[in-house]
């Protein structure tokens, strides 16, 4: 990952620079026109959040069962990145809804569960910061709860009566809209991977520093 990081960062930057061009060239949707173009960044930000949540939970399981610090580092990195992408989704969505629905926020099942998912990972980070000894394993459990919440966020539109657009919108995207959408999804997932790698490196360095301080105190 170390060698590939800079080339991948360049690719991600280029993708994000080119994405608006592709989106601008995509056809307008018949009822929402320009407003629908928020979807090209809104949906991928949730996909990236779900992936980061999965990484955090996998890291948590790894840490719980093996006590391997690398699992914990991955879990923390995934959780923080998940909060960031969740914040993007929770900001871009209301900007779209403000015009499409006439209100920025509705206590609709999908939106409420998505907010709960975001709050779960904010709780994770608060637990890590202020939880004291043992909070690493407790927070790994929180990450697992967060992962269990993901299918409810995704399938909420099918499980409950909501005003949010259906999941079928994505697989039924017509040519012209499909390409920029998947381009953005790939760009967001790449950005998520790079951010998780960076954040995990920070956690690794912190662990090393803690070990050095301990060794220094003992000698």
């Amino acid at each position: 990952m170390k060698k590939a990081f800079v080339p991948l960062l360049i690719v991600a930057t280029l993708m994000f620079a080119y994405a608006p061009v592709m989106i601008a060239q995509a056809p307008f949707e018949s009822t929402m026109f320009l407003l629908q173009k928020i979807m090209y960044f809104h949906v991928p930000s949730w996909f990236a959040m779900f992936a980061a949540v999965a990484i955090s939970a996998i890291g948590g399981i790894w840490y719980i069962f093996t006590n391997d610090k690398r699992g914990d580092q991955l879990a923390v990195a995934g959780a923080e990145v998940a909060v960031m992408f969740g914040a993007m989704g929770l900001t871009t969505g209301p900007l779209w809804a403000y015009k499409a629905w006439g209100v920025a926020w509705q206590w609709d099942a999908k939106l409420t569960i998505a907010l709960l998912l975001e709050l779960t990972f904010i709780a994770y980070l608060l637990l890590r910061k202020y939880g004291g000894p043992g909070s690493d394993k407790l927070s790994a459990g929180v990450a697992l709860f967060g992962l269990a919440n993901v299918p409810f966020v995704y399938y909420a539109v099918q499980l409950w009566r909501t005003i949010h657009p259906l999941n079928t919108v994505v697989p039924s995207l017509p040519p012209g809209m499909r390409e920029p959408f998947w381009f953005c999804v790939f760009g967001f997932l790449l950005l998520m991977t790079l951010l998780v790698a960076m954040r995990a490196r920070l956690e690794r360095l912190r662990t090393t520093l803690d070990d050095l301080y301990l060794a220094d105190d003992e000698s």
Binding site: F16, I38, F41, T91, T92, W96, L195
Partner: peptide, 20 residues
Amino acid sequence: SAPLVVAAYSVVWLVAMFYA
């Protein structure tokens, strides 16, 4: 719609860059 679309894209860019 334009200010909302521009705001949405700006938020994504700014949040990602600030976090990095």
